[in-house]
Structures are given as C-alpha cells and as structure tokens.
C-alpha cells in the first residue's frame, strides 16, 4: 500500500522522508533531553534548584535555526507540488463525475465507464465535476487528491507508471454512503488500452429510463436485483402494493405512475415501511417531467418481463 505508482509518488515520498527525518530527530532529541533532566535533576538527587538567567543568544538561536529548517521544508513541499498543477499539453483528457455516491469516467470518444482504465506511462488529465455536493478524488497509490466542487471546474493530472489495479476513494465527506464511494483504476499497456477504448461499446443502456436512473445515481441506493440498499429495491416495483407511512399513519398504495412521480419529487411524503425518512433528496427541478415518464416506462417494461 505504501508503494507509489505515479510520476508524483517519488517526489511526495521523498518530501515525507525529508520532513519526517528532521521531525524524528527533534522529537527524539528533545524527549531524551527532557527525560535526562527528569532523572538528573530529580528533587531527590538535586534538592536545590539553580537559578539560570535568560539568554538572548540562545533564544535567537532556537528561533533562527528552526526558521531556516521550516523554510527548507516549505520550499521542498512547494517544489514537488508545483508540477502537479502544470498539465502537459499532450495529456489524454478524461472527464470524471463524482456524485452521491458513485464515479463515472467519460472518455474523448464518448465512452462512459465506471472504472478508470488508463495506459501505463501516458499523461492523463482528469477534469473533475460534481453535480451535487463536494467530493474529492483520491488515489492513495498515486499520492494525489483534488476536490470536485459543484459549480466549479477543477482538475488533476498524473502519469501512472506501474501496471496494476488501484483504489479510487472519495476523501471529502458527502453524506450517507461516503465510505462506499469507491472505484478502481486499472493501469494497462498501451495496446490493451487501445483495444478496450475502441472495442467495447460505451455502456449507454438501451433503455432511456434506465439511463436516467443510473445517471442520477438512483441506483446507488436502490438496487435493480432485489437487494436492500439505502432505499427499497426497484425490482418488481411497478404495480406492486406498497405499505407506506404518511405522517405517521400506515397505509397501502399501488405503485402506479402517480405514486412513482410523487416518490421522486417528494420522497419524504410517503415512506416505505422499514425505511427512514430524510435519506433521499427531492428531485423536483432536477428530473424533468419527460424523464419521469421514461423512468415509469422502464419500470413498467420490467414488470412485464417473465420472472
């Protein structure tokens, strides 16, 4: 895990090493002095304290030397950091969207993936976007991290230099499933990358409704396969009888198009029994009337499939 796998890793690690070495020197040195004083000038051994006068020279010394040292640390940190913001012109551009609570990576040819596949040894620039709250793209093995701030453009770049699969984590707290907001980056050879890039058809689901569900990250809380996540599953939703709580009163409703629409626009009004209110945001002004129709159509089509 300490293994670095990008062009920045070596610089960052050596900056750590530099600062740690000096820090440990001071920590250990001062601690030893302190303990030595405690033993040597212990009251039993040294019943009478000697009064020492202040010493201007000493004060100046232990102001100036640390000052010089921290300036070196500052400079080291800055020098290694500077290139992190200077993207080479030939970098391949990937658009990254981090939303509550998943990642998607969009390539120049329109291909969208939920895994960041990159060729080894080639510079890549990630343009960072968030449609909802702040997230932060963090790849520990590459020693890089940058926030994705809604309404602001931000970016990061790097050259992955060892083939392998590495974790992508979200480092800025973004709500309920923050700690589950993971993805992988797979670093492969140029040929492999080209094959992946060209061959695989972009995973744009044929069904428009499903695409809307996925693009709005509905499916990160509502499963399609019947498993229980943060919210109830979408499987077998359409036309089913739902036991819901409205203002603390239990009632049964049929999941028809109006019910589904209400559940999207005012999720807290009726809560399916066994789930907590306040978990889902209201999607009014986010998902349009037409999109809701498409979603309902998708649910309906699913209910017609043979089991």
């Amino acid at each position: 895990m300490f293994q670095g796998a990008s062009n920045f890793a070596k610089g960052v690690d050596s900056a750590f090493f530099f600062i740690f070495a000096i820090s440990i020197f001071f920590l250990v040195g001062l601690t030893i002095v302190m303990i030595w004083f405690m033993v040597h000038y212990n009251r039993k051994r040294h019943p009478k304290a000697e009064q020492i006068k202040d010493n201007m020279k000493l004060e100046v010394t232990w102001t100036v030397i640390p000052l010089i040292i921290v300036m070196l640390m500052f400079y080291y940190g800055y020098a290694v950091f500077k290139p992190m913001r200077q993207v080479p012109d030939d970098a391949m551009v990937v658009k990254v969207t981090g939303r509550m609570w998943n990642w998607s990576f969009e390539y120049a040819n329109g291909k969208i993936s939920n895994e960041l596949v990159l060729p080894v040894g080639k510079a890549v620039k990630l343009n960072l976007f968030s449609p909802d709250v702040i997230h932060s793209l963090y790849i520990p093995a590459f020693r890089i991290k940058e926030d994705m701030v809604p309404g602001k453009d931000n970016y990061m770049w790097f050259i992955p230099n060892i083939e392998g699969t590495y974790e992508i984590l979200c480092a800025e707290y973004c709500g309920l499933r923050h700690s589950f907001m993971e993805a992988k980056t797979r670093i492969v050879t140029e040929e492999e990358f080209q094959k992946w890039f060209a061959e695989e058809t972009p995973i744009v689901p044929e069904d428009k409704g499903l695409a809307i569900l996925q693009n709005n990250a509905c499916t990160s809380c509502h499963s399609l396969d019947g498993s229980k996540l943060v919210g109830p599953t979408f499987k077998g939703l359409f036309g089913s009888e739902r036991l819901v709580m409205e203002n603390g009163v239990e009632k049964t409703v049929t999941a028809d198009s109006t019910y589904i629409k209400r559940a999207i626009l005012e999720p807290d009004k009726e809560i399916v029994k066994g789930f907590a209110p306040g978990m889902m945001r209201a999607y009014d002004k986010v998902i349009t009337e037409d999109d809701i129709k498409a979603i309902v159509a998708y649910f309906e089509s699913q209910s017609k499939l043979p089991n």
Binding site: L27, G77, Y78, F81, M84, I144, K145
Partner: peptide, 26 residues
C-alpha cells in the same frame, strides 16, 4: 509537551503542499 511535539511536527507534513495532498482528509 511530548504529544504536542508530535502534533506540531506532523503538522509540518500537513503544511507542506506536496505531502498535504496525500494525507489531507485522511
């Protein structure tokens, strides 16, 4: 004093840009 030294010295890696990027928010 001991713990304050550790807290302060590790603050240096958080103050330096290159190292901050790795350990920020961890």
């Amino acid at each position: 004093i001991f713990q304050f030294m550790i807290g302060g010295l590790t603050g240096l890696t958080l103050g330096a840009l290159a190292t901050n990027v790795h350990v920020h928010d961890t």
